[in-house]
Computed example of a mutant assay.
Amino acid sequence: MRIPKRSIGWLAPVLLLAGCANQKPVLYAQGGSPAGGDQAISACMDQARAAGLDYSKGHGQTARKTVERGAVGGAGGAVGGAIYGDAARGAAAGAAGSVAAGLVSDMFHRDSSPAPAYRSYVDRCLRDRGYRPVGWQ
């Protein structure tokens, strides 16, 4: 199966935007400058990363699910291929299709909330600077 080149032109920006939906803290309005709050949020997020914390809480989940989907798709494809006379080709097609569908699905359904330790670190950093975080969005 070939993908037309014109399809790739609109697909790439959509996939890139799907991965850019990270949340950040919301601060209780205390009469201070919003720019100062944004600077404090950025500084605290940088400090959390420097401390070795990662925003994402799904370490290894995508890779594990990809292998799992490939195995399931390969088994299903082998059964379908055996019915129609070529189990190996069916297994390869089933595995490839399942992996591709799973990766695209993960891009659109990924959890954009921060890891608990990262969130706690940033919230504490903001409180230490005199801000009052009330949640993340």
Rank of each mutant, 00 (worst) to 15 (best):
R64P: 03
H109W: 12
C125I: 03
G130S: 13
G102W: 00
L126E: 09
H59F: 14
G80W: 05
A95T: 04
V72K: 03
A117C: 01
L126G: 10
A117Y: 04
D54T: 14
K65A: 09
S56Q: 15
L103T: 01
M107E: 01
S56N: 14
G130N: 12
Y131E: 14
G77M: 12
P116F: 07
G81C: 09
G70F: 01
R69H: 14
V67I: 14
H109R: 10
Q61R: 15
P114G: 08
I83R: 08
E68P: 07
R89A: 13
H109Y: 11
G70D: 03
M107W: 05
R127D: 08
G76I: 02
S56E: 15
C125T: 04
C125R: 01
A91H: 01
G102V: 04
R127S: 13
G58I: 08
T62N: 10
I83S: 05
A82V: 02
A78W: 07
Y55R: 11
G60F: 01
H59N: 14
G58A: 15
G81D: 08
Y118S: 04
D128M: 13
V122Y: 02
A91G: 07
V122K: 00
S120I: 03
A87C: 14
P116L: 06
F108E: 05
R110G: 13
A71R: 06
A78T: 04
P114H: 09
V72S: 05
